[in-house]
Design a protein around this nucleic acid. Structure first.
Lengths: 152, 152
DNA sequence: CCTCTCTAGTTGCATAGTACAACTTGGCGG
DNA sequence: CCGCCAAGTTGTACTATGCAACTAGAGAGG
């Protein structure tokens, strides 16, 4: 195996290890907002409101899963649904004020934790690491399901 | 926010996105070996055999979770338990031949998928990316639970 | 030798996230 | 009007997970 292969191997192992830990510790920090809820809210903020089907497609989730998550988030008052006047089958999802606030809180406390962990990294390394991750995830998002599954 | 903060923000977002997708697509590639089982087997291979408690500590899992996973892996014939002759409370876990084989297969097909996604990366970037991930995860492993949860 | 305490692991119970399949509702083209 | 497709919901089942209660064995102190 050449050097590039060894690097790929390491990247695979470390990304897997990270993914493995992520869920294991999910929710310990923010019991009121699970990893799933957090990412859904984040996408709603980014997109400025979208359909449940869009969320399902974006995260490769079943629409039933999204439906239940959306129901829970609505019950919690973090998002609201509005029936699309153009097509009554469609529900446009939007963050409520409370949802926006909580999302910001969680994002902030997560940012603090990440900063702590990355405190002793030189700025140049941080930038490069960030760029690599963006590049990697961009490729992953455009890849077919099988390739996405490799991240698991 | 300065440049370093922006990088931290990006790292947080991208790591989270990755983690989010990882689990969602887990198992689609290798139905016979879940993400959890895969990482446990991987650790057994690396360590050359260890206790259930070691696995739990390494992955920040409850010992009951590990116990069940181990039971399943043993039933599947991928690992075997031997009672430590020095301490009858302890079970030393080891990969069986079948376990070693399947682990190698899955690792290989995952490696192929990762290589595909990383195909157009220069070797130098691969090496740096790999090094960053190792560094990041090493910090995560030694961090307190709260900081680990930030990866979720 | 007996007891107390600690450790390793198992099991009972509850919960979250997920998928798949069946169903409901509504839009669209013949 | 009819048949078909698309968006969501609901029923069901399964996996991973944690916590708490338990069992079994090791070690220390009397």
């Amino acid at each position: 195996m050449n050097a590039a292969d060894a690097s790929v191997e390491t990247i695979q192992r470390e990304m897997t290890a990270f993914a493995r830990r992520a869920r294991a510790s999910a929710g310990r920090m923010h019991p009121e907002l699970s990893l799933v809820s957090y990412t859904l809210l984040g996408h709603l903020e980014e997109s400025g409101g979208c359909r449940a089907t869009d969320l399902a497609a974006h995260y490769a989730l079943d629409k039933s899963t999204v439906s239940r998550q959306v129901t829970a988030l609505e019950r919690a008052g973090l998002i609201e649904r509005q029936v699309d006047p153009e097509d009554h089958r469609v529900q446009v999802l939007r963050l409520t004020e409370a949802g926006t606030r909580i999302l910001a809180q969680v994002t902030e406390s997560r940012r603090i934790a990440f900063r702590e962990r990355l405190a002793d990294w030189p700025a140049a390394d941080l930038e490069r690491f960030a760029a690599y991750l963006v590049r990697y995830n961009t490729a992953a998002a455009g890849a077919p399901p099988a390739a996405q599954a490799s991240g698991s």
